[in-house]
């Protein structure tokens, strides 16, 4: 009688105050049957890793529109690793130039979803990635 749910942390690191995209994703993942922990604006890398650990999530979704992604994301990945959360799936959304994507992928980001991404694609990506043997 186990009742497993996909748990996702949606966080907005950094200082920009635009959280509409993050809320749209949170709602879409909820409608796909996932449990979404929404942490709100202005989260530090430390706060994100701590929340991911306490909530024991499978996925961390980061929304960044400030352009600070190349500074913030490596620190978040480092904090997640330090917390022993290196098996968590890290997804990034927001305004991320194409040129930066390979570097982010190399550091451990599983996927980058830009503006206009169909939310069904994100749901499918998460389900596929978590169904893979490593999960």
């Amino acid at each position: 009688m186990t009742d497993e749910k996909i748990r996702v942390l949606i966080a907005k690191p950094g200082l920009d105050g635009h959280d509409r995209g993050a809320k749209v994703i949170a709602r879409a993942l909820r409608d796909a049957g996932m449990e979404v922990i929404y942490t709100g604006l202005r989260q530090t890398p430390e706060m994100i890793a701590e929340a991911a650990l306490q909530e024991d999530v499978h996925v961390v979704g980061l929304s960044i529109l400030s352009g600070a992604h190349m500074a913030l994301i490596p620190r978040i990945l480092e904090q997640l690793r330090a917390a022993g959360m290196d098996d968590v799936l890290v997804l990034v959304g927001g305004i991320i130039p194409d040129d930066d994507i390979p570097a982010l992928r190399e550091q451990g980001v599983s996927a980058v979803f830009g503006p206009g991404t169909n939310t069904d694609n994100i749901v499918r990506f998460i389900r596929t990635a978590l169904a893979a043997p490593s999960a």
Partner: peptide, 27 residues
């Protein structure tokens, strides 16, 4: 859908970084 948005942590950011606190959201 069986899904949930758990938003209580939004109001609890003052407690971040404190090893004497453990917050868990439940649906």
């Amino acid at each position: 859908s069986g899904g949930a948005v758990l938003g209580d942590r939004v109001r609890m950011t003052d407690l971040a970084g404190d090893g004497g606190v453990f917050i868990r959201s439940m649906a």
